[in-house]
Write a protein that binds this DNA or RNA. Structure first.
Lengths: 262, 262
DNA sequence: CTCTTCAAGACCTCTTGAGGAGTTGTAGCC
DNA sequence: GGCTACAACTCCTCAAGAGGTCTTGAAGAG
């Protein structure tokens, strides 16, 4: 037995996919749809919720229901790590040019806004294992979000960890009143003599929690990409662990693998 | 004014996150919850749908509502490309040992099941651009899905493209009655003298379409990861383009980037 | 001309009520 | 003992209706 709300959803979905209803176009009101399909308004709403959860439409209170416009994603390129490394040895003042983030997204450094928060904490189970250190080891934790100045919504939430003793040689890094990690993590690691050799990135995707949806300004019908980045130095030690949450509708990850020649 | 269904959802979400309701545990019935929160059953259902869409619970018809158990993901490692390359030159018969896919997931080759379908088609806009060839160029298209024999659901949907003229030197590859691409794409490219030099992979994530949800057996509250893989040979030509759809709740991607030494 | 007010139209929430359909365990029949 | 039928409990669908909030544009006041 065909379910009424699925019949309606299937019909609307087909018309959107076929391009009969273009991006940004308004759908008939719920009342009109109810009349057209000879169903109650709640049943129509049920169908619309389905399409909204699929990311096909936007329902705007007081305005109407619209076909969603696809977004053009910002690219996060794994070559950023090499770029950042190349930049890390240069002194802070002389390298206003290009950094890793700007290279990917095409945004200038000026257009990037950061909000940072700074804490000191002890490594607990999961993190201790990630760093390969005993539980209770002192870590530095930094929470921040990157945002493009033209857009209101942030495009990443980041929590980054370092082992305190590893970077204690540079007291600036422990001063909470200063900008934390100025110049990027690789630059700061360089100031204490650490060279990053290899970066491992693991990621999965899932629907956002309500907190993530609010922080990243995600509409229904989108996903988040969860990225765990682990940096190793030339001796194989873990020197940085970062958890990044990215908006699935605005992010594309680009990874290049070079193969050895025959 | 707090919305009733959000109040209920928040309360249940908190209790699940806090571990008061463990994985697999059954929640009270909709009727019981309605009575407890002094709300109607549809309002409770509204709250449950929210949690279901977040991937926190499973609603099973006739049985009840249960806290979802987290799944342990299969890992897809980008070193697979190097492994596959190493294997590509060996003759088919003498390399029953390990292949790329088995290395990641820990599954033996015997446990992997493929369903393949074979077509010939002309390159249209998007694909022609991806390959850097004129529109209308003849392509070979293969659709298949990989599945683990122990699990009923497939763990990837793949559509792979090759340029017909590029591989015409090996007539086996054009024979639709034979197993398409036996031994893997890199092996087959090797039989016509093509060496893969570099692999580019682009990822995004979004909620599944109904078709994807059915094919991958995805419950509500999960995402799909979309992968566009492009392989380049040593002369910079695009030799293979593959689109892969992966279930977000069962997939973890691992990517290692090696940096140049100072 | 500008600002404020208001009404219309849109989506949103919640209720009550009635069935429908999947699952399981039990009582009863053979 | 084994099979069958049924009852109880579950979630699922749909309807009709009342009231709410949000947005926009038009009418009216200044």
């Amino acid at each position: 037995m065909p379910k009424a709300y699925e019949v309606i959803a299937d019909d609307l979905r087909r018309s959107i996919r076929a391009g009969e209803r273009g991006p940004g176009e308004r759908l008939p009101s719920e009342a009109d749809l109810a009349h057209h399909y000879r169903r109650s308004v709640p049943t129509v709403q049920n169908a619309l919720r389905l399409l909204s959860d699929e990311g096909l439409i936007d329902r705007r209170h007081g305005l109407g229901t619209f076909v969603r416009r696809p977004r053009t994603p910002a690219v996060r390129d794994n070559r950023r790590h090499q770029w950042e490394k190349d930049r890390a040895r240069r002194p802070l003042a002389t390298r206003a040019e290009t950094g890793a983030t700007e290279r990917d997204t095409g945004l200038r450094a000026d257009d990037l806004v950061f909000h940072a928060e700074y804490r000191e904490r002890e490594a607990s189970g999961e993190l201790a294992e990630a760093f390969g250190v005993p539980e209770g080891t002192a870590l530095l934790q930094r929470d921040f979000r990157t945002r493009h100045s033209a857009e209101p919504a942030p495009f990443s939430l980041v929590t980054s960890y370092l082992v305190r003793d590893m970077i204690a040689a540079n007291p600036d890094l422990l001063d909470e009143t200063k900008e934390p990690w100025p110049g990027g993590t690789q630059h700061q690691l360089h100031t204490v003599g650490i060279e990053v050799d290899r970066v491992e990135e693991r990621f999965t995707a899932r629907p956002p929690t309500p907190e993530e949806a609010a922080a990243l300004d995600l509409p229904p019908g989108t996903s988040v990409i969860l990225l765990r980045k682990t940096s190793y130095d030339t001796e194989g030690r873990v020197v940085d662990v970062s958890d990044v949450t990215l908006p699935g509708d605005r992010t594309e990850l680009l990874f290049t693998t070079r193969l050895e020649r025959w």
